[in-house]
């Protein structure tokens, strides 16, 4: 009896091994992100939860910000409903991993486009939505006027950012020794600076302005005039899905073109039957391009109607009337002397 039971056990174990060996793991072809999103019924968008103006979780539990609105517009373009969306709050160091593992479909999180991220980290980048540069915040009391004054100063910086690398490059170039104090969390970095642990706090200028707005005494801090780097911020997704790339890219372009033509969330309905051929094409006249991407012909109409054009998104979160009052500057349309430019919808 005992032996028979033992034999049966052995047989089961053998079967298990064979079964495991036969199942060779998920080695199937590349997943199509758009199909995955549609099947799931909602878009998963990785954002910042701690950067007022760009991506911020309000006390009411709602995500708000410039980057967040692009997620909403993308959801509107795919599902005709900007609410079919889930946010994944990420820290600077987690943000690429969530794309690599497929946990999020797209990243709109003030992320700088660099060659190493575009290649060896395994990502693809979309059009720049915000042209930024790195700055340095110091206290007024310290009397620091330029980076060269910061010999042996302690500088608070967040890990996992291009900021960390630019800081090293810029100070090395100037031959100024300094001490970095590196934190994982954006709140901790700014908090340590505010408590006086560091003489300087460095991140993208937009981030500095945003942080300054929520400091205890914003007047006590100044941002040095020197710009340490160029930081083109834009969307990113896992490398290799060209169709998904087209969807994200043309959504951003579409919102820019809408601003060029003056199409806003308020007046988009008046433009549907426009005599201007490009406007008619983008608001539903062109069936071919959306079909090739796997989208509804009204995709851009929905995005503009529910969220707004590029200029509206900027004004809503960063422009005059917000705590940041950012000038459009380089982020104005190319027709107005800025860098925001989109290829034609044709």
């Amino acid at each position: 009896m005992r032996q028979r039971r033992l034999l049966r056990g052995l047989a089961t174990a053998l079967l298990a091994v064979v079964g495991l060996l036969a199942w060779s793991g998920p080695g199937e072809a590349q997943v199509n992100i758009l199909d995955k999103v549609k099947k799931r019924g909602k878009l998963i968008c990785a954002v910042n939860a701690k950067l007022p103006g760009f991506g911020y979780l309000t006390p009411q539990g709602r995500y708000e910000g410039f980057d967040v609105d692009f997620c909403r517009a993308l959801a509107a373009a795919i599902f005709s409903d900007s609410g079919r969306l889930e946010f994944v709050p990420t820290t600077a160091k987690e943000r690429f991993t969530v794309l690599q593992t497929g946990e999020a479909d797209v990243l709109f999180r003030n992320t700088t486009w660099t060659i190493s991220r575009d290649t060896s980290v395994g990502l693809d980048f979309g059009p720049t939505t915000f042209y930024d540069g790195q700055g340095m915040m110091v206290t007024k009391k310290s009397g620091i006027k330029k980076l060269e004054d910061m010999k042996n100063a302690s500088i608070c910086v967040q890990t996992g950012t291009t900021t960390e690398l630019n800081l090293a490059d810029q100070f090395r170039k100037r031959g100024v020794p300094y001490k970095a104090v590196v934190f994982e969390d954006a709140d901790a970095t700014a908090g340590a600076y505010e408590q006086g642990r560091c003489d300087g706090f460095t991140t993208d200028i937009s981030g500095l302005i945003s942080r300054k707005s929520i400091m205890k005494d914003p007047g006590a801090h100044v941002i040095l005039p020197q710009v340490m780097s160029k930081e083109p911020l834009g969307p990113a997704w896992a490398h290799g899905d060209n169709n998904w790339g087209d969807v994200v890219k043309w959504l951003v372009y579409g919102l820019v073109i809408a601003e060029e033509f003056g199409i806003t969330s308020k007046n988009v309905d008046e433009h549907v039957n426009s005599k201007e051929p490009e406007i008619a094409r983008m608001l539903g006249g062109d069936k071919e391009a959306p079909k090739a991407m796997g989208l509804d012909p009204k995709w851009l109409y929905n995005a503009i109607k529910q969220v707004g054009n590029y200029g509206e998104i900027f004004a809503r979160h960063l422009g005059p009337g917000t705590p940041f009052s950012l000038e459009r500057g380089v982020n104005d349309l190319w027709t107005k002397g800025g860098l925001i430019y989109a290829p034609p919808i044709r």
Binding site: K93, F96, S120, T159, G160
Partner: peptide, 10 residues
């Protein structure tokens, strides 16, 4: 963590 964020070699 900094290294793997920069190189993607998690």
């Amino acid at each position: 963590q900094t290294i793997f964020n920069q190189t993607g070699r998690s």
